[in-house]
Every structure is written in structure tokens, then in C-alpha cells.
Computed example of a mutant assay.
Amino acid sequence: MGRYTGPKGRVNRRLGAIVFENAGAIRALERRNTPPGMAERRRKLSAYGTAHFEKQKIKYYYGLREAQLRKYFEMARAKKGNTGEFLLLTCERRLDNIVRRAGFTKSRLQARQGIVHRHFQLNGHTVDIPSILVKPGDVITLRNRPNVKELYADLVESASLPSVDWLAVDRSGFEIRVMALPTATDISLPVEIGLVVALMSR
């Protein structure tokens, strides 16, 4: 799932949500909000089908494979409290999600690609793992290379994302500072997480 390279507009249409943020995929959903191949209205899903769709939203949105999602789920289930909330908050703490939420890229796929290509540093160390979970006090910066900074300058300048309370973003200095852990109000994906928890608890 993390390396999905198929038609992103079809995924948005099938799930009825913007899980891929590139312009073409968004337009595909806006033009036709029925699943691919369907000329009539969406067929009513079973309870299992609905839960499966909600689970797919999480996997595509955050770029997770089944094993990664299962790992996060087991981490969340081991904690006291709301398992679904902990699951989504773990996803929000991924490095690629942080880069995207800070407005350094136009999508999570682009953020993941930049990290894999070693464009970013975490606490002064160059990293290439998009799934790193950040913690308060962590600092994410661009590598101090002219070609890398030139590549991201236009992206950062044109970013129109709302500010994130738990991140301090210095766009001119290409720096993201994690001020706190995200809370339930910071979750960026609208999803029926209770259905996903019930499905994965079987």
C-alpha cells in the first residue's frame, strides 16, 4: 500500500473521499463522486463493507501497508483509553505526515518521496524513513544544500494549509519544530474509526 502507483482519482472516487491530494485526483472526485464503472448511485454497503472502506481510507491517506497499520493498531490497543483515537494519533506523528501538514509539500506522497531521497534532517541527522514517529522537541529541517532548498522554496511559499497548533513552522528557515503531541482535534482524516477498530479486533 505504501508504494501504490495506480490511478489515484479512481481511489478517491471508490472511497468517496479525498485520500490522494494531487490536483487530478481531487478533480476526479469533484467531477464524478460515484465509484469507477458505476453510472447509477452508490450501492448500499454491508456493515463489513463500510468498515473495510473506512480502513482503506486510513491506509491510502497515510500510505500504510497492512502490516504497518496492524502494528499501529496493536500499539494503540496496548494503551489505556480510546484505541481508535490512539491509532490515528500515531499516524499523525509520522514524519511524512508532519512534512505535509507543515506545508512543505503538496501531498503525503510527495513528502514521502522527499524523505526517501534524503532531503530532510531530523534533529540534525539526515533521514530516509518516512514512518519515523516524531516526539515533542524534535526539529525537522531541509538539508543545507542549494538545490534542495530551491526545490522546496516554491512549494513552501505557495502552501495554503491551515496552521497546526502542535507544530511551529519557520518557512523562511525551512524548519519544523514539534511543540507537543497531537490531540484528537488535530486528526486530519475524517473517518469512522470505531468501525475500523471493530473490524481489526476480530
Rank of each mutant, 00 (worst) to 15 (best):
I132Q: 04
G9K: 07
G16K: 04
A78F: 01
R31Y: 09
E66R: 09
V191T: 06
F86C: 08
Q110E: 15
V139R: 06
V134L: 05
Y60N: 09
L95S: 05
L95A: 03
N22T: 11
L29G: 13
L88G: 09
E40G: 15
R43Y: 00
T183D: 13
R14M: 12
K44G: 04
L88E: 00
L133G: 01
S46I: 07
G49A: 04
I26W: 04
R10C: 13
Y62T: 05
Q56F: 00
L109P: 08
G6N: 08
A153N: 00
R3M: 04
L45P: 09
I98D: 07
G16D: 02
L151C: 10
N147P: 06
L87Y: 01
F73Q: 05
L167A: 14
F73E: 07
F53C: 15
Y61G: 08
I58R: 01
M200Q: 08
L89K: 12
L89A: 02
G173V: 02
L181Q: 12
G2Y: 04
K149P: 02
K8I: 10
H117S: 03
H125A: 15
G137V: 09
I176R: 00
T90I: 10
T141K: 08
E192Y: 07
E175W: 01
L45T: 13
F104K: 04
R202L: 09
G49H: 03
H52D: 15
V116P: 01
R108E: 00
I129M: 06
S158T: 15
F73P: 14
G2K: 05
L64G: 08
G81C: 10
R42C: 06
D170C: 04
W166N: 06
E40Q: 13
T83Y: 06
P7Q: 04
F86A: 14
N33A: 06
L195P: 14
N12P: 08
R108Q: 03
L161Q: 11
K79Q: 12
R171A: 08
S107W: 01
G114M: 00
E150R: 11
P136F: 02
K57H: 04
A23V: 14
I98R: 06
L142D: 06
L167Y: 11
Y72L: 12
D165Y: 03
A78K: 06
R171E: 11
G114R: 01
R65Y: 13
N33D: 14
Y62R: 10
S188W: 07
G173T: 01
M75F: 06
E85T: 13
W166L: 00
R10P: 07
L69K: 05
I98K: 01
L109V: 14
A180T: 03
L161C: 10
S201T: 09
W166S: 08
G37R: 02
A51G: 03
A39T: 11
Y4D: 11
V148L: 07
L69M: 04
D154A: 10
E21Q: 11
P182S: 00
R70E: 12
I140W: 01
Y152Q: 03
Y48S: 11
V196T: 03
T90M: 14
G63H: 01
G137A: 04
R100D: 15
L109M: 13
R43C: 08
I140V: 15
T126G: 05
S107G: 07
S172F: 11
R31I: 06
S201L: 02
F120P: 02
L45S: 15
I140H: 04
R65P: 08
R43W: 05
R118Q: 12
Y4Q: 09
R43M: 12
V116R: 01
T90H: 09
R100H: 15
T5V: 15
